[in-house]
Design a protein around this nucleic acid. Sequence first.
DNA 1: AAGTCGGGGAA
DNA 2: TTCCCAGACTT
Length: 369
Amino acid sequence: MNKSISKHTLEKLLQWFLQVREDYFFRKQRNPYRVWVSEVVLQQTRIQAALEPLERFFSHFPDVKSLADATEEKVVYEFRGLGYYSRARNLRKGAIYITQFFDGKLPESYDKLLQIPSIGPYTAAAIASICFELPYPVCDGNVKRILLRANKWSLTTRDPNVDSKCISQLKKLYKGLPAGNVNEAIMELGQKICTRTKPKCTICPIQDSCKAFAQGVVNKYPLIPKKKPKVDVNWHLFIVVHNNKVLLQKWNNFYFLKKQKSFPSILDFPTTKKQECSWETKKRQINKFIKKYSAKPLPSLKHSITKHRIVIFPYIIFSSCWEEVKNSNSLVWVSEQQAEKQLVSSALSKIWKLYQQSEILESSHDKNT
DNA sequence: AAGTCGGGGAA
DNA sequence: TTCCCAGACTT
């Protein structure tokens, strides 16, 4: 006997949830602003890693108004440690939008929530159900994994059809149930029991409704997507310093970290032919800079963005004579304090720390020249 | 439709 | 070490 998921299944799930529910600080009151920010953060950051930065974020931005009034730089800075910094910029945009169009309060409507920057289908459903008891199922990675197993649907969690399949199945069952609690319950099941690896099926409260468990094939679901090949990138970047100022570049078309300030850079793709000029040409360019400006190489470091395997080669240049300044308005000198606050992404802050450790070199260099 | 964007836990 | 996750936005 393997029954499919029913309203009774969700009722059993709720019972389990009420017993194991974690008392996270952001759950204490169902304040729409706090639920919004928390859900945006928890989209892609595990709860344990998010707790501290999230409390810090709330202490600086306790409500929509404070977030809307803050500068983008400050918002991104207080988001540090959480990754995916476009979320911070979009949260600020969202706060401004809410101020402008909804009188500073999150609207009690799924469709209106969806208009707000940073709020997509998942976040709109989470806020609508948790704060306003509107019957919208959330569909995140946990929900998809659970339903793909329970239904034995032979799809990957990335399949574009999965979201609508999951939502339409759940939506039929939500009538008369507390939507917010059901949504939190199903996601907590995914975190604690129906985990991606080593699921704890023997203590699963909805084991009876799981087709994969009944047939002993839980670890065959969800289907594994075929992986894409990685691209190697060598990222040569120049930390140009003079009089405690550092030269940063905001280049909107740069390959990585668009819209963020970075360092003047040269990219090389050693294993692909896609680059605009040969490695020999790049090497000549780089060597030219090294010679011309007495660039000092720092230890290289590894980094990864999406399907790229990146090796970063940082060089320090102690000089105010960077000719390219004249040719580019995207280059700007900033103080070290400003740089500290603007180089937030992990790759850049790693490089910045590396530079600070070697700052002693700068002072000795200055004395000797 | 496909690519961007971290940081951490598991393999 | 390497692999992999996952939602909103961008292109």
